[in-house]
């Protein structure tokens, strides 16, 4: 704390110092580490395995994880406010099962999708109100929502229902060519659109900035006249909506509805958000980082599948280890600042 008027430290600082600054900022540090990690993993994969360094391997990351990207978007909003949403996996399952059941009953796909989005948003609204009005901890409120959603799944259908609706089947099978024998699915486009909207909302709207403000200090945000109450409820609505949308994409992907599907997906979503550089205590993070986090998770799986002999448990262990590294990284970066 030197004199105020002596001018900024910024004048004439060199590039190296600036790079160090960017990497040690709690805002951009973790996400940059993730980016570097992603590139490293891709490079290592490319060196080790034949056919790894192909565009389609990269695009498959999106195809296989489109629903997870959408989930991570909603989770980012929630975690940015310092909350958490444990219900997303169960809500995905609920969405798939509603879709399967109603399509089985002959409903039109458009109506089904809209209904799912309405139901899951409403569930998010209930959770948000419980958290804001009744001051229930997010962890517990979303836990209740998780129980409710899973329970409803079982009530609707115990067994797995196959979806044979032509629209859903076509969404699962259509490939949109990108040239050079590369292609993506419509789900990828939906996920990327959702991502674009989320980026815009978080960066360019007062609602988005208030989301960050709540994570920084809810009280300060309130004293600054920002709409913290409304925002705090809305992030859970968004998370509910994203879970519903992710559920629809998941139904496109698996063409079935099943009560026991997507168990533990909430952990994947949380891990993606954290690895993507969003602070679990809220206030810092980017939704693009979360998407990058999803890609890192996807890449781990891809590498393991290329490795062949390694099995799925390594995924969990790697994810846990990455979580640990990033949580400690966050701790170090934020404690330096305060």
């Amino acid at each position: 704390m030197s004199a105020v008027a002596t001018g900024p430290v910024a004048t004439g600082r060199n590039l190296g110092a600036r790079i160090v600054d960017v990497f040690t900022s709690p805002k951009s540090g973790p996400v940059l580490v993730t980016g570097v990690l992603f590139l490293l993993m891709f490079a290592v994969g490319g060196v080790r395995y034949r056919g790894f360094l192909s565009g389609q391997v990269f695009l498959n990351l999106f195809i296989d994880n489109a629903y997870l990207i959408v989930l991570a978007i909603g989770m980012t909003f929630v975690i940015l406010t310092g909350g958490i949403d444990l219900s997303v996996g169960a809500v995905v399952a609920l969405s798939t099962i509603i879709a399967a059941r109603l399509l089985q009953a002959g409903w039109s796909p458009g109506v089904v999708i809209l209904l799912i989005l309405a139901i899951t948003s409403a569930l998010g609204l209930l959770v948000g109100l419980m958290i804001h009005v009744f001051e229930v901890q997010p962890f517990i409120a979303t836990l209740a929502a998780m129980f409710l959603a899973r329970g409803l799944c079982y009530i609707i259908a115990k067994e797995s229902i196959t979806i044979d609706n032509p629209f859903f089947v076509s969404m699962a099978n259509v490939r949109i060519p990108l040239g050079y024998r590369l292609s993506i699915t419509p789900s990828v486009i939906i996920a990327l659109l959702a991502l674009a909207v989320a980026v815009w909302v978080l960066q360019y709207t007062r609602f988005g900035r208030t989301t960050y403000a709540i994570g920084g200090s809810e009280q300060s945000g309130m004293l600054m006249g920002l709409p913290t109450s409304r925002t705090k409820v809305l992030v859970y609505v968004i998370s509910g909506f994203c879970s519903g949308l992710a559920g629809v994409l998941y139904a496109f992907y698996t063409l079935s509805g099943y009560a026991l599907t997507a168990v533990g997906t909430e952990l994947d979503a949380i891990a993606a958000v954290v690895i993507g550089g969003t602070l679990l205590t809220g206030g810092y993070g980017f939704v693009l980082g979360s998407a990058l986090g999803v890609l890192v998770l996807g890449l781990i799986q891809t590498i393991l599948s290329f490795e062949g002999s390694l099995s799925s448990w390594w995924t969990k262990i790697f994810i846990g280890a990455l979580l640990l590294v990033f949580i400690i990284l966050q701790k170090v970066l934020t404690s330096r600042r305060t």
Partner: peptide, 22 residues
């Protein structure tokens, strides 16, 4: 390390099943 309990134990909640499978 002073990490929030919910976050600290989340790590092993995720990785623990992997270890068990290992």
């Amino acid at each position: 390390l002073g990490i929030q309990p919910i976050i600290a134990t989340l790590i092993l909640m995720t990785a623990g099943r992997g270890i068990a499978m290992l």
